[in-house]
Amino acid sequence: MIQRIRRLGRRGCDLLEAFGRAGIFLAQSAVGLPSREGLYLWVRQMHFVGVLSLAIVLVSGLFIGMVLSLQGYTILVDFGAEDALGQMVALSLLRELAPVVAALLFAGRAGSALTAEIGLMKATEQLTSMEMIGVDPLRRVVAPRLWAGFVSLPLLTVGFGVVGIYGGYLVGVDWLGVFEGSYWSNMQASVDFIDDVGNGIIKSLVFAVVVTWIAVFQGYDLVPTSEGISRATTRTVVYSSLAVLGLDFVLTAVMFGGLA
């Protein structure tokens, strides 16, 4: 029994230690003024992290907007309120689905790739050799990836929202015959730029920091073997999905739930 409690205690200590390491890691790599060279590295990573995730995010956004519109219509039409379709699609996308689903897709597409890439660089001693050349890998390898993630995900989220609203329009207006004017005007009457779009973007910023941080840290901190890499990529997806969903609840409670 005492053994078990002790084991639990050790788990707790390990966990705290990992959090500490991750915090120091973030602080060391995310700060520092970008140089010209750093800017170039950042653009490179923006390409890998952002541009290459664009397709999956946009396609998913289109489908989610279409489904939302279809489901919403069947419910709203019972109340004769199908005019409110635009409002429903836009609010649920902007407040909830765009930040969350884009973050989950981002964790799967870009996060796991980041972990694997950095993990492979660690396993093949590229990070150590960089250190021996006298270049800080936190600055050279980690920082551009972190910042690329921080910037990409909010942009992807905006794209997701736009495409989703368009998808809702396609299904609702073109297919189900909701009056086009009421689709847009109801939306415009109910969506507030600061409260809805702004809060959605704040959410996605938070998710961007968390997901990229987890991904990059898992890559940097893994056991440098092929098994270690595969485990770390799994951990990245699991941890960041959980973190996104959990944080989403907290943020929603604060932003829209009247807390604080």
């Binding site: 902007l94 905006v158 929202g161 736009v162 005007s185 939306m187 730029f193 779009v197 973007i201």
Partner: peptide, 21 residues
């Protein structure tokens, strides 16, 4: 990357003008 960022900003403008009116 430039197009990507431009698209993001345009999307934001769309959300501002067309969606939140």
């Amino acid at each position: 990357v430039g197009l990507f960022m431009l698209a993001g900003i345009l999307g934001l403008v769309f959300l501002g003008l067309r969606v939140s009116g």
